[in-house]
Computed example of a mutant assay.
Amino acid sequence: MNVGFQLFQLQSIDSELDHAQNRIKEILTAIETDKNVALAKKRVETMEAELRKIKSDFETIDYETDQKKVKKAQSEANLYSGRIQNPKELQDLQAEIASLNKMLGELEERSLEQLEKLEKAEEKTSVLQNELNKVMTDFETGKSRLIAEKGNLENTIKNLSAKRSSQETQIPEEQMKIYVRLRNLKNGLAIAQLQDSSCSACGSSLTAGECQQVRSSSQLFYCTSCGRIIYGS
Rank of each mutant, 00 (worst) to 15 (best):
M1L: 01
V3A: 02
L10V: 10
S12R: 15
S15I: 04
A20G: 02
A20D: 05
Q21A: 13
R23F: 10
R23P: 00
I24N: 10
K25C: 09
I27H: 08
L28R: 14
A30L: 11
T33L: 06
T33R: 11
A38E: 15
L39D: 09
A40H: 01
V44G: 07
M47P: 00
E50V: 04
R52L: 09
R52M: 06
K53S: 13
D57F: 03
E59M: 08
D62V: 09
T65L: 05
T65G: 03
T65W: 02
D66S: 08
K68R: 12
K69C: 04
A73H: 01
A73R: 01
E76V: 14
A77I: 09
L79T: 11
Q85V: 03
E89Y: 06
L90M: 04
D92E: 10
L100S: 04
N101S: 11
N101Y: 07
M103P: 00
L107R: 02
E109L: 01
E109W: 00
L115F: 03
E116W: 08
K117F: 07
K124T: 10
K124M: 11
T125K: 12
T125V: 07
T125R: 10
S126E: 13
V127S: 06
E131S: 05
N133K: 14
N133D: 12
N133L: 13
K134P: 00
M136Q: 15
T137K: 15
T137A: 15
F139G: 09
T141E: 13
E149S: 09
E149M: 09
K150R: 09
L153R: 07
L153D: 03
E154C: 05
E154Q: 15
L160H: 02
R164H: 02
R164P: 00
S165R: 03
S166V: 14
Q167H: 05
E168A: 13
P172F: 09
P172G: 10
P172W: 09
E174N: 07
Q175K: 15
Q175R: 13
Q175A: 15
R183F: 05
N184H: 06
N184V: 02
L185M: 11
N187K: 14
L189E: 00
L189C: 01
I191A: 02
I191S: 01
Q193R: 15
Q193V: 03
Q193W: 04
L194E: 02
L194Y: 02
Q195H: 13
S198G: 06
C202G: 02
C202H: 01
S205L: 11
G209Q: 08
C211S: 07
Q212A: 11
S216F: 01
T224Q: 12
G227F: 06
